[in-house]
Design a protein around this nucleic acid. Sequence first.
DNA 1: ATGACGGTGTGGCACCGA
Length: 259
Amino acid sequence: MTQIATWNVNSLSVRLPQVIDWLAANPVDALCLQELKLTDEKFPHAALEAIGYSSTVFGQKTYNGVAILSRSPVRDVIKNISGFADEQSRLLAATMTSPLGDVRVVNGYFVNGQEPGSDKFAYKMRWLDGLNAMIKSELALHPRLVLVGDFNITVDDRDTYDAEGLRETIHHTTEERNHFKALIDLGMTDAFRMFEQSEKSYSWWDYREFAFRRNRGLLIDRILVSNTLEPMVKSCVIDKAPRKNERPSDHTPVVVSLG
DNA sequence: ATGACGGTGTGGCACCGA
């Protein structure tokens, strides 16, 4: 069995002990992190090597930053979207070896977008256009591919605690959802939705207003698998446990099992 | 309409996230 997980940790400096604890309980083959909020120089390679993980890092000061932690070293690393000039460290692609053969792992911290009509929203749309083009060419090179990360898009009404009230607001717009569909149309499947899931399954909850306790959340952390990998997907689950930690990230891990 | 919580970096707060 090969397991790949994604987790937006909202500062690795703060969350490192929780990441180490989580990996001890969930010894996945690869863990993709987003929102490191630290530079490459400050990445805790040694602490992760000590528990059996090598790390490929694309960091940034204050904001963004992504990494792939893996039990075996990865290769053919690409930082950011090919052909898309970006000041922000939001995407990391690498190839991992597995019993299934090589698997291309693309780890993305998708743009938030703030508000439809804003400059940040326009950047989100450009970023998504660039990502689509990159995934198209990556799929041609690597038939076994996963695209994981913090998508910052709800796909349909199941993914949000207030479908009516939040309609066409950020993370809920038709334009964002069309970009998601365009990724699916390249030949990808949302692993989480391959299976029966309990209602109101979310991966992010606001820190405010007791949102986690009230389960007012969004499903925005996702794992897409290429059509070639789809028959090998055995499960895809959200692990809510880390959201109950002291000083939790506002996101919680999602894990796919391939075999 | 606003702020609520938490992180960072700067400096006694502003900005950002989703």
